[in-house]
Design a protein around this nucleic acid. Structure first.
Length: 267
DNA sequence: ATGACGGATCTAATCCGA
C-alpha cells in the first residue's frame, strides 16, 4: 500500500466542505493538509471528514482568516503548532505518524501572502513574510532523526516556469528575487527535495493557483506554483507519483488553489 | 494593469487575498 499525502489551500473549509469530501473520496489520500480553513476549531466540519475515514485530525483554526488542519487515516502523535513571528496567527501544524514501520514528521504551512508592495521598509506585510521565511530556516528535513515532509501554501513561486511570465512577475509579490532567495535558503539549509519538480521538470510550466479575477482562468492560464511538497531525500527516493489536480479549479465555486498529491512507496 | 473576483465579518461596506 502506497502512502498518499495531499495539500490544499481550501479558502474556507465551511464553504467547500463538499469539495473536500469529493477530493477525499476520489483520491483517498492517507493525509490531507488544508490551509486557509477560515474558521475556529469548533466550527471545523470534523464529523463529516471522520465519516470518510479521517478519524485523526489536527485543527488549528482562527476566526475569519488563515487557519490550518491536517486530516489523517492514521494515528497522529506529537501534534503541535508554532507561532511564527509571535503574532498569534494559525499558520503552522506539525504531526508525526507511522509509515512502513517508521515514524514520519509532516509540517503543514501557510506562509503570509505579503501584500502588494515588495519592499519591507514600507510594507509591513512583506516584512512579515520575509521574517516568517527567516524563521522557517530552522525547519529541517531530518528533525530529531525522523524523516520529514513539509507541505503547504508557501505563497512563493520560485522558478521561472512556476509563473506564467517570469519577466512580467519579477516585481510582483510571490515571484520577486528577495522572496525566492529567502525560500531557497529555507530549502537548502533544510536539506529538502522538491517533489513537484522531481516529477515535473523545471523546463515545464506547472501552476497550483489561478486568480479569481481572470475572465477565464483556464484559457488565459496565468497561474503560479504557490503550493509545495518538500521531503527529506530518503522520502523523495520513494516518490512514485505526483499529481497537481488542475481540474479542481474548474469545480463549481472553487478555491483559487488546487490540491497537490504525492504518492510514496511505503509498504 | 494580469485582472477586478471572492471570502469573512458586528449583514454593510470593509479588510484581505497574491
Amino acid at each position: 500500500m502506497p502512502l498518499k499525502i495531499a495539500t490544499w489551500n481550501i479558502n474556507s473549509v465551511r464553504l467547500r466542505q463538499g469539495q473536500v469530501e469529493r477530493f477525499l473520496t476520489e483520491h483517498e489520500p492517507d493525509l490531507l493538509c488544508l490551509q486557509e480553513i477560515k474558521c475556529q476549531n469548533d466550527q471545523f466540519p470534523a464529523k463529516a471528514f471522520r465519516k470518510l475515514g479521517y478519524e485523526h485530525q489536527a485543527v488549528h483554526g482562527q476566526k475569519g482568516y488563515h487557519g490550518v488542519a491536517t486530516l489523517s487515516r492514521r494515528p497522529l502523535s506529537e501534534i503541535h503548532s508554532r507561532d511564527f513571528c509571535a503574532v498569534g496567527d494559525s499558520r503552522h501544524l506539525c504531526v508525526v505518524f507511522e509509515a512502513g514501520g517508521q515514524l514520519m514528521r509532516l509540517h503543514n504551512f501557510y506562509v503570509p501572502a505579503g501584500g502588494d508592495e515588495p519592499d519591507p521598509a514600507i510594507n509591513p506585510k512583506f516584512d512579515h513574510k520575509l521574517r516568517f521565511l527567516a524563521e522557517m530556516e530552522e525547519i529541517a528535513a531530518l528533525d530529531s532523526n525522523i524523516p520529514t515532509i513539509l507541505v503547504g501554501d508557501l505563497n512563493i513561486a520560485p522558478l521561472e516556469n512556476d509563473v506564467w511570465s517570469h519577466k512580467q512577475l519579477l516585481r510582483v509579490v510571490s515571484h520577486t528575487p528577495i522572496e525566492t532567495e529567502g525560500l531557497t535558503r529555507v530549502y537548502e539549509k533544510g536539506g529538502w527535495s522538491d517533489l513537484i519538480r522531481a516529477k515535473i521538470p523545471p523546463h515545464e510550466k506547472i501552476f497550483t493557483w489561478w486568480s479569481y479575477r481572470a475572465r477565464d482562468w483556464d484559457v488565459s492560464d496565468r497561474g503560479r506554483r504557490l503550493d509545495h511538497v518538500w521531503a527529506a531525500p530518503q522520502i523523495a527516493d520513494r516518490l512514485v507519483d505526483l499529481q497537481v489536480i488542475r481540474e479542481a479549479r474548474g469545480w463549481q465555486q472553487p478555491s483559487d488553489h488546487v490540491p497537490v498529491v504525492a504518492t510514496l512507496d511505503y509498504s
